[in-house]
Computed example of a mutant assay.
Amino acid sequence: MTRIGRSDLDVFPLALGGNVFGWTADRDASFAILDAFHAGGGDLIDTADGYSAWVPGNSGGESETLIGEWLASRKPSRVVVATKVSTHPEFRGLSARNIRAAAEASLKRLGVETLDLYYAHFDDPETPLEETVAAFADLVKDGLVRYTAVSNYSADRIRSWVELAQAAGFDLPVAVQPHYNLVHRNEVEDTIVPVAEEFDLSLVPYYGLASGFLTGKYRSAEPAEAGSPRAQGAAAYATPQGLRVIDTLEEVGAAHGASIAATALAWLRQRPTVAAPIASASRVEQVPDLLASARITLTSEQIAELDRVSDWTPSA
């Protein structure tokens, strides 16, 4: 188990991404994935109020609704639900009024009385940060939210949030959710990690498998092999340097009897300040591999080798 920041949230060191629920995973598949994740020891589920409004026919909130139905059906013990605000079509941005309304809507969809971890999903330059910070603090004060967090914020804006909260006597955020993986390291390690270390924030990174590239599935940058937009994004990393990362993951994983994907997530989990990488599964058959990543401990030599081959900046 791992603790998120200064909170009392002790969680399995892998978060299940809920972005696929109501999109590439229908209700039955979503329930099967959630069942398998929980049965395997997983207890941290990450979603957002905007998932999955981009799907034709959806209006946003589908992921939260499915998770809420699963919670009501299964009544699982020890589940931590993290969700986010700012991208639902009806609740865009981070004004105080919007944050309150969005949180109440998320609580209703999830069928819970309190949100365990509530993220500001994307920074909102149109709303004064003071207003956003105070609105999140009010949610904590009123018992709607246990802990606050930020996602996709720059290091400077995280620092500003913390300083505003400190000055006002508000609870500080406990987590940061950045885009971070073996082929997307520099910005996070150079700017976000130092701030997280200074203020005892945990990283809960998304895109831990680089849109699928770090599964080893995409070893060509040819568009014909890429196919879908997601696959095209993954294939963009298939440069000679990117493929060296895959080859090294394969070698390191073999020493642990682990897949390329599980090894990539294990590397990420062992980075400074990282509490639990986020990974999604569209099929229940993918869940055991994700869970396995949380139980792999790479040696210092293996980590150093992966650090060495991934010390580059992709053109993508």
Rank of each mutant, 00 (worst) to 15 (best):
T239R: 01
G233H: 12
A262G: 12
E197C: 10
L291K: 03
A276E: 04
G42Y: 09
Y206N: 10
V162E: 02
L249Y: 08
L115K: 02
Q166L: 15
A276R: 02
I303F: 02
N181L: 00
T65F: 05
I99G: 08
S73N: 14
L203V: 10
E189V: 00
A266F: 04
A103I: 06
P76A: 03
Y180A: 00
R269M: 11
E64V: 01
G57T: 02
S211M: 14
S106M: 13
E251T: 09
E285K: 11
R308Q: 09
V176N: 03
V85Y: 03
S293K: 04
P194F: 06
P173Y: 01
Y118K: 03
P125L: 09
D247V: 01
I33C: 02
A316I: 15
A103K: 11
G111P: 05
A32I: 04
A266K: 10
D8L: 04
R159N: 08
S73K: 14
E126V: 15
A235H: 10
E187R: 14
E285S: 13
P128C: 03
E225W: 15
A196D: 03
W267T: 11
L265C: 02
F37R: 06
G208N: 05
L172E: 10
E305Q: 14
W54V: 01
F136W: 13
H121K: 04
G143H: 07
P205Q: 00
E250N: 15
A135F: 05
A25Y: 06
D43G: 11
P240C: 11
S310I: 03
M1P: 13
P128Q: 05
G208Q: 01
R78Y: 06
W70N: 00
A103F: 12
S310W: 07
D35S: 07
A137N: 14
Y153L: 09
D307M: 06
A261M: 14
R159G: 01
D311H: 14
L44C: 03
S280F: 08
Q286D: 09
S95I: 00
K108G: 13
R146Q: 15
R219E: 06
R27S: 06
G17N: 06
Y180W: 03
A221H: 13
A32L: 01
H184E: 14
D46L: 01
A168I: 03
A281H: 01
I192Y: 03
G40V: 06
I4H: 06
Y51P: 05
D247G: 09
G216I: 04
G41D: 02
H256Y: 12
D35C: 12
R27A: 08
